[in-house]
Amino acid sequence: MYRIRFHGRGGQGMKTASRILGTAFFLECFEVQDAPRYGAERRGAPIFSYVRASRSPINERGVITNPDLIVVADDSLIPIPAAGVLQGITDNTTLLINGHDDANTWKHRLNINCKVLILPVTEEVEDRAELPFVGSACVGAAARLIGVITEENLVEAVNDEISSLGADLIKQNIDQATQAFELMAKHEGLVKESTSKTPLDYEQPEWINIPFENASISAPTIHAAATSVEVRTGLWRTLRPVINYDRCKNCWWVCSTICPDSAISVNEKSEPVIDYDHCKGCMICVARCAPHAIETIPEQLAQEKEKQTA
């Protein structure tokens, strides 16, 4: 069975990617399962989807924990543990990254021994939550790596899954998919099917009898205030608002009031300060600051700059 997982951000079309690949497999007469991870998709937030395909009926279900191929549409997610990109990776896994850095850099950085392939970023965009056609490119590359999907069926699958988008967009998606398909020609068939866990080699689950705990412990109750600050929603951000204090008029804290996420506070010098651990990068503050004192910087660029100065 083939087990493939797609990782990206809400808005980058990972659900569609898994559907296209599922359909392509289906057109090749495979038995197929494809699904997005269940839950509300939030723009910019880490998200994944997955595909299983096999020549015989598939009994396995749920999230893939032992992927043969991991496709990463947005390389900025890899270092984020909560995104779970590397979950279940082994030396037999192939990791396909849409990004700038080369394969060795990633191997070194992640200290991994598996096959790493790079799908070069074709188009630079300011806002990575809107990477155009990244899903289709990822599928095209994945299809070639798997090696059992023809270009013809790949194209038909893209057509099927995005038919509501209009001719222009369909064509651009198909172009992206086929270009990526060509690009991976020399790696055709690199990803191999793997077997299932057997009763001979499984790890025994460490079941326990959970202790009885009375309702003061075991009711679904949070006994504290504002614990949500521990959730780093700043990870969702693909664009970063940066305040230029030379321009800031310390107006009536417009930005601080309208930021939906309470991510702008006002310090003792009466200046607005952005909490980057939690700013989701909606850019409302940028849009509404009358003297244009808040600038927009691609998050990746901002992080690289930070690294350099650190």
């Binding site: 521990e230 009031t257 939906p260």
Partner: peptide, 29 residues
Amino acid sequence: HMTDLPSTHLLGTGTPMCSGCGGLEALHE
């Protein structure tokens, strides 16, 4: 005036609402 509005905010950060959620904006105000 806008200056009468609170500049420290009670509602905690880190919620799972969408980026740019108009409902969350109203709630925090």
